[in-house]
Design a protein around this nucleic acid. Structure first.
Lengths: 233, 233
DNA sequence: TGGCTGTATTTTGTATACAATAATAGATTA
DNA sequence: TAATCTATTATTGTATACAAAATACAGCCA
C-alpha cells in the first residue's frame, strides 16, 4: 500500500489503454516500449509491476508476455520470469537473410500491382529518409528504411506474407535500434531505393528485383562487417 | 451436471498431460489433434469443455488457444470463442510460396553442411515415402514429404529459420491433411527428391537448388491446378 | 403470421486467490 | 572466516470467482 505513490508515477509514463481486449493493448504498449529501447536488454519484467503500472490484473499481462516471448521480444525463463533479451548481433544475423528472402518474394508478387500512387509513396518515404540521414537522426532513418520496404511488400496480395513480414520487421527494428546508431549503410541505401523506384517506373521488373536483392544483401553484409562476424552465406 | 457422462467419455480420448507447463502441454495436444483432422473445420472449441476433458482449468487452455490462434490453427472470434478455420485453399495458396522461398534459403545455407549421414537420411526418408505412395497411404506420404524437406533445411545453421519453417510446415500439414488425399504430385515428388539427393552427392549445388525450387513450385502449381485457382505468381 | 424487442443463457474476458518453486539471506558449524 | 544448509520471500504457474457481452429464444405487437 505504501507503494501507491511510486505506482502513480510509473503509471503516468504509460499510455492509456483504450480499445480491444486488455491483453492486446498491453501487448502493443509493451512491444512499442521494448522496440523503442525503453527497457534495457537483460532487464527483468515482472507481471505484478506491469499490472500495477497499467492498472490491470496479471491475466492480460501474462497474455501479452506469452505473445512477446513467442515473437522474441522477451525471453521466458521457467518459473523465473521474463526479460528483455540481449544478443542483438546473433538475432540480426539470423533475421536479415529471412527478411531479405521474403521481401524478394513479396516484391515479385507485388510487381503487377505497382501503380503511380505506390511509386509516389515510395519516393516520398525515401525523401524523408534522405533528410533524416542528412541530419543524422538515427532511429528515424531506421524506421523509414523499414517503412519503405513495407510500402512495397504490402502490395503483394498475400495477407499471410504481409503479416509475417510485419512481425519480423518489428523484431529487426528493435535490434537495430539497440545495436546501430542509424540505418544500415544509410546513404547507400537511399541511393539504392531511388534506383529501385526508377526501375519500377520504367517497368524493368527484373532489374528492380535485382536491386532489391542487392540492397537487402548489403544491409546484411554491412552489419556483418560492422560487428566483425563471419557471414553464414 | 448431467453432462458428466459425456465429459468422461471425451476425456478418455485425450492423451494424458505429462511434462512442461500445462499451457504448453495443452497446446501440443490440441495442435496435434487439429493437424490430424480430429476437429472438423468450422467446429467451435470451448474452453470449459477442453478444460474438463483434460482435467485442467481454463487458464492453460486459454494460453494454448492464444498460441494456436496466432499460428492459424484456430480462429478467434471476439467474445464468441475459437473455431477450427475452414478455407484450406486460400491458406495453402498463401503458405506454399512462403515455405518455398524459405526452404530455398535454408538449403543454400545448408549446402556446406551436407555430409554422408544427411544424404543417407534423405534417401531413407524418400524410400519410405515411395513405399507409402505406392500403397496409397495418403497422410503418411504427406508427412514424409515434409520430413524430407525438414531433414535438409534443419541443417541450415539458422535456428530462427528452422523454427519458422517448422511452424509454417505444421500449418501446411494440417491444410494438406484436410484438402488432399495424398502428398501433392506424389510420384513426381519422389523422383525429384531422388534427383535432388543425387545432385547433392555429386556436389552440384546449383543444380540441387534448381531442383528444390522446381519441386516446391510444382507442389504449388499442382495444388493450384487441382483446386482450379488462379496462381498469384 | 412475421418481425421486433427484451430477457435469459452461454461463453469469453478479467480479476484474484492459492500452490509450487527458485532465489536469497541468515545462521550455524567446521 | 568460509561454506553449507535452512528458512523466508518473491515470483511465476494454476485454479476459480466475477463481469461483460453476444446469441438465442420466447413473448408481444403490428
Amino acid at each position: 500500500m505504501r507503494r501507491s505513490a511510486s505506482v502513480r508515477v510509473t503509471r503516468a509514463r504509460w499510455p492509456k489503454l483504450t480499445t480491444g481486449t486488455l491483453g492486446d493493448q498491453v501487448y502493443l504498449a509493451l512491444r512499442d516500449r521494448i522496440i523503442a529501447g525503453r527497457h534495457a536488454p537483460g532487464e527483468f519484467l515482472r507481471e505484478i509491476e506491469l499490472a500495477n503500472a497499467l492498472g490491470v490484473s496479471r491475466t492480460p499481462v501474462r497474455e501479452a508476455f506469452a505473445r512477446l516471448a513467442r515473437e522474441g521480444f522477451v525471453e521466458r525463463l521457467a518459473r523465473r520470469g521474463y526479460r528483455v533479451p540481449a544478443e542483438p548481433v546473433s538475432g540480426l544475423l539470423e533475421l536479415y537473410p529471412i527478411v531479405a528472402s521474403l521481401e524478394v518474394l513479396a516484391a515479385e508478387l507485388a510487381l503487377p500491382q505497382v501503380d503511380a500512387r505506390l511509386l509516389a509513396d515510395l519516393r516520398a518515404i525515401n525523401r524523408r529518409m534522405e533528410a533524416s540521414v542528412e541530419r543524422h537522426e538515427g532511429p528515424t532513418g531506421i524506421a523509414l528504411n523499414h517503412e519503405f520496404h513495407r510500402a512495397l511488400s504490402s502490395r503483394c496480395g498475400n495477407k499471410r506474407l504481409c503479416e509475417l513480414l510485419d512481425e519480423l520487421r518489428s523484431q529487426v527494428l528493435r535490434l537495430e535500434y539497440w545495436s546501430a546508431d542509424q540505418a544500415p549503410h544509410a546513404e547507400e541505401a537511399v541511393r539504392q531505393h531511388d534506383e529501385l523506384v526508377e526501375a519500377l517506373e520504367r517497368g524493368e521488373y527484373d532489374a528492380a528485383l535485382r536491386l532489391l536483392r542487392q540492397n537487402r544483401l548489403q544491409t546484411y553484409f554491412a552489419f556483418v562487417a560492422e560487428v566483425g562476424a563471419v557471414p553464414a552465406t
